[in-house]
Measured scan of single mutants.
Amino acid sequence: GSMEQGFLPKGWEVRHAPNGRPFFIDHNTKTTTWEDPRLKIPA
């Protein structure tokens, strides 16, 4: 929902695949990933 959306880094969006699995869109680089960007520790 909109709650989890608010925690994503700037430029990211979460969508759900037809099977219900969430995936993440990085509008900054125009890419998608199954990995939650929030789980990655910034270098």
Rank of each mutant, 00 (worst) to 15 (best):
34 W>P: 00
25 I>G: 03
15 R>G: 07
30 K>D: 10
35 E>C: 15
43 A>T: 10
26 D>Y: 06
41 I>N: 13
28 N>W: 06
24 F>G: 01
23 F>V: 07
34 W>Q: 03
19 N>M: 01
29 T>C: 12
14 V>E: 09
13 E>L: 03
1 G>R: 08
19 N>Q: 03
33 T>I: 05
20 G>Q: 04
30 K>N: 15
26 D>V: 02
13 E>P: 00
31 T>Q: 08
36 D>A: 01
22 P>A: 09
6 G>T: 11
42 P>R: 09
6 G>V: 11
34 W>S: 04
5 Q>Y: 13
27 H>V: 08
1 G>Q: 11
34 W>H: 02
32 T>I: 15
3 M>A: 13
18 P>K: 10
38 R>P: 01
37 P>H: 01
21 R>D: 07
33 T>F: 07
14 V>N: 00
10 K>N: 09
27 H>L: 08
16 H>V: 15
22 P>F: 08
17 A>Y: 06
23 F>W: 06
15 R>L: 08
7 F>T: 15
11 G>S: 02
42 P>N: 12
19 N>K: 01
31 T>P: 02
24 F>C: 09
5 Q>V: 12
30 K>Q: 13
22 P>Y: 08
42 P>E: 11
14 V>T: 05
12 W>M: 00
15 R>V: 08
26 D>C: 09
19 N>S: 10
40 K>Y: 14
30 K>H: 15
17 A>F: 06
4 E>Y: 12
43 A>K: 11
27 H>A: 05
7 F>Q: 15
8 L>H: 01
40 K>F: 14
5 Q>A: 12
10 K>T: 10
4 E>M: 14
13 E>W: 04
36 D>K: 03
11 G>P: 02
16 H>N: 08
11 G>H: 03
41 I>Q: 13
15 R>Y: 07
14 V>H: 06
3 M>D: 13
34 W>T: 05
2 S>N: 11
18 P>L: 09
5 Q>F: 14
1 G>I: 12
21 R>P: 04
20 G>L: 03
28 N>G: 05
19 N>P: 02
3 M>T: 10
21 R>A: 07
24 F>K: 02
25 I>K: 03
11 G>I: 01
41 I>Y: 13
27 H>I: 07
36 D>I: 02
16 H>L: 15
8 L>R: 03
29 T>S: 08
24 F>W: 10
2 S>K: 11
29 T>F: 04
16 H>G: 04
35 E>I: 14
30 K>S: 10
24 F>A: 02
27 H>R: 04
38 R>Y: 03
23 F>I: 09
